[in-house]
Design a protein around this nucleic acid. Sequence first.
RNA 1: GGAGGGAUAGCGAAGUGGCUAAACGCGGCAGACUGUAAAUCUGCUCCCUGUUGGGUUCGGCGGUUCUAAUCCGUCUCCCUCCA
Length: 378
Amino acid sequence: MTAIRYELIHEERHTGARYGRLYTPHGVIETPIFMPVGTQATVKTLSPEELHQMGAQIILGNTYHLWLQPGDDIIYEAGGLHQFMRWNKPILTDSGGFQVFSLSQLREITEDGVHFRHHRSGEPLFLSPEKSIAIQNHLGSDIMMSFDECVELPTTYEYAKASVERTLRWAERGLKAHRHPDRQALFGIVQGADFEDLRRYSAEEMVKMDFPGYAIGGLSVGEPKEVMYRVLEFTIPFLPKDKPRYLMGVGSPDSLIEGVIRGVDMFDCVLPTRIARHGTAMTSAGRVVIRNKQYERDFGPLDPSCDCYTCTNYTRAYIRHLLKAGETFGQRLVSYHNLYFLLKLMENIRQAILEDRLLDFKEEFFLKYGLNDNKKGF
RNA sequence: GGAGGGAUAGCGAAGUGGCUAAACGCGGCAGACUGUAAAUCUGCUCCCUGUUGGGUUCGGCGGUUCUAAUCCGUCUCCCUCCA
């Protein structure tokens, strides 16, 4: 008995995009889905109640951060991450693999694992596949990720190949170390940089290990979008149809749509919450840098065609004022809206899949959003 | 009335003869941000100019000097102390 089960309900007629359901220990998720990121046991600025209200179905937590603070032992004692943060819906935890990438100045990779320097104190740290799984077992997430190396692009073929092979060995070790496969699902992560044969090799080898779900990692790390789309196109065909596919770290509206069209079921990204805190809103008419002077006297809503809490109650001028004044409420209001916007986008995508009109939906969306062929999104 | 100290760009504050259109901070204006080292980071912020460049600056006025925010004189205003 595995912890999760994926049910493929409908494939969109023109694209093959999938509508499905993912059954987890903490509830059912409709896919394709966007997952807000809550690295440190909180989606920055927002409460679990607000996340419920906006329709979030699953959120992320991070092994690396929670291991260091407050410590996975404390979260275990608290009864697990769900109880600790009072979020009773599904949680997916990242393995620390992304920190192998993002903390590249502070780490060294060996076969055994990765030696880090604490990003604040400089203290020496060591994270391995076994350690990552042990922490995630403590956290009690519904979906755990295997410990991988997210390689920087561009990279050489030789390096990417060695890294893919090591990540495969790490995945195997993670599977062995996993203590609760009945309560927590463990996903494998396909790597391989932008090399077609390496992506295929990585996918096929991961599939042999029979994970309950597969992620596509190592994308959205600065490469052009066309590269990302191409990699998806030559990777996803090697993933089984009866398992969910998770594209890690993607969250611009256009990429979400393009990802779904290529067969992705799950996404996560810090983009909506980060740019919100930095003063940019995602709206149906494109990005709105709400902290810009032009909105000083704009007493309309952030997004006129949005019915979220923020848009039904507050004006652009007010939100701009809050952000300029350094008030956290401003960050909250925009974070709320941006997440709501992406969750709503995914809901519309699911509906479009069910009605076999995803390409029409895409065209309409891009037109309103101000995205032409040459214009890049966020 | 006497003795000191001070006045620098929107604000605060360095600079005390040439490398200074003037550090730095704040504020302002933009930009970046995609498995969160991110309420962060980058650029611009006297005027004109796409850039090169040019034009006006460091309380006012007048000097010294090849060269002054920086030295001298004087005036105005502010602060501290003494009477």
